[in-house]
């Protein structure tokens, strides 16, 4: 079984469109949407939800009004400015749940033991069926933290499904950036497919995400999306990638079919006669070839 994570560094380069097409092309696969705070994959894969579970990512503090003596200890020791002081209220202190990091320090040192520190529900996750195989996806609660943990959970569930059904591939739609949820999405994976766009921003962000993949020693592959918007920059990006030991496995052209497919709620390759679908097939064929070479 191979786990492939589609990433980009920069947002909006076409990760989800590429991932959705790979899901169709990979056939025996399970798909995981790890962009848990702005998930879009469900819009083109039409999942039918079979199982919904709460996600408890961390603990959160809250002051129990009856027990608080207004001593201000929590306000003094919280380093995240999550204890708010409002002397017009009783008690004068309350927790800003958005700012709370869940460290539990306030609760531990409250002389009145007036601060509860309990697991909090930070979101939900789903196991679904799609036309192309099982899917694991999630929704982080509004303004919630712990996206890295939710990503881990989604990947872990996807792995368990793949093992159970003996599927050949896990396709992961990753989040943008290079921070916590991206690190959670790629560590331990078999390959990352970087989708870049031919802009100076795209080139800049590619370098950072490629370095990240290198940092965690994960084989990386590149495809430039909408390459014809600026072929010169596209070439430049490909050159840089090759110099950094990243295999270039194809180019995808700019095509309005991509947006039309999105509006119809379908993966691009569901329009097999279009040029952009052909590009996607080339990307997948090359990727599959390279992955199986690495295996031997």
């Amino acid at each position: 079984m191979k786990e492939i994570v589609v990433v980009s560094g920069k947002g909006g380069t076409g990760k989800t469109s590429v991932a959705a097409s790979l899901v169709v092309l990979a056939k025996r696969s399970v798909v995981a949407d790890c962009d848990v705070d702005a998930a879009d994959l469900h819009l083109v894969l039409e999942p039918r939800i079979k199982k919904t579970e709460d996600f408890t990512g961390g603990k959160s503090a809250s002051i129990v009004p009856g027990r608080c003596s207004n001593c201000g200890k929590c306000y003094e020791i919280c380093r995240f400015n999550a204890v708010i002081k409002d002397e017009s209220k009783q008690p004068a202190y309350f927790i800003d749940h958005i700012a709370c990091e869940g460290c539990g320090v306030c609760s531990c040192f409250c002389p009145e033991k007036a601060i509860d520190f309990k697991p909090s529900v930070n979101g939900r996750w789903f196991i679904s069926d799609t036309r192309y195989g099982p899917m694991v996806h999630a929704r982080l609660g509004i303004a919630q933290e712990n996206s890295g943990k939710l990503v881990s959970l989604v990947r872990n569930q996807a792995r368990m499904l793949a093992e159970k059904d003996n599927l050949s591939y896990i396709i992961v739609d990753g989040p943008p950036g290079i921070g916590c949820p991206v690190i959670s999405s790629i560590t331990g994976a078999d390959a990352v497919l970087i989708v870049a766009e031919p802009t100076v921003s795209g080139a800049h962000d590619l370098e950072r995400v490629a370095e990240l993949a290198g940092h965690f020693k994960i084989p990386a592959f590149l495809c430039v999306n909408k390459y014809d918007l600026n072929p010169e920059v596209a070439e430049n990006i490909e050159e840089k990638a090759r110099a950094g030991g990243i295999a270039v496995i194809g180019r995808i052209r700019y095509d309005r079919t991509v947006t039309e497919a999105q509006i119809k709620g379908l993966p691009v390759v569901a329009f097999p006669d279009t040029a952009v679908a052909e590009d996607m097939r080339t990307v997948w064929e090359n990727l599959e070839k390279k992955l199986n070479l690495n295996k031997q």
Partner: peptide, 16 residues
């Protein structure tokens, strides 16, 4: 005694 003791971590820091 057929297994050999590891002298260091054999994989990169796994986050998952």
């Amino acid at each position: 005694g057929m297994l050999t003791e590891a002298e260091e971590a054999d994989v990169e820091g796994h986050w998952i």
